[in-house]
């Protein structure tokens, strides 16, 4: 996992508007997008299709409860980004 993803406390949401012809298509596309980016633990939190397309929010869980959290790893100087 890239180090920056370690810093995401739990989930990464992507909220956008997808031009599509149906609710199903919008859902399929957003999930495909997250999978193309390398996320596997993905879900759609919200989707609303109207004429032009879908207002949609999808989520990739980076850390679920009980995982080993990257943000608990002690920071060294190179990590601190300050």
């Amino acid at each position: 996992m890239p180090r920056i993803l370690d810093r995401i406390m739990d989930g990464l949401d992507i909220e956008t508007f997808i031009v599509c012809s149906s609710e199903e298509e919008g859902r399929k596309l957003i999930i495909q997008l997250l999978k193309d980016w390398g996320f596997n633990d993905v879900d759609i939190v919200f989707s609303q299709f109207q004429g032009p397309g879908s207002r949609i929010r999808a989520r990739a869980y980076v850390h679920r409860s009980g995982d080993y959290y990257g943000w608990l790893k002690p920071l060294d100087k190179e990590d601190s980004m300050s």
Partner: peptide
């Protein structure tokens, strides 16, 4: 804001 979402844990944002 995740109150009604049941697909997974709520997130801090």
């Amino acid at each position: 804001a995740d109150e009604a979402y049941s697909g997974g844990p709520i997130t801090v944002p």
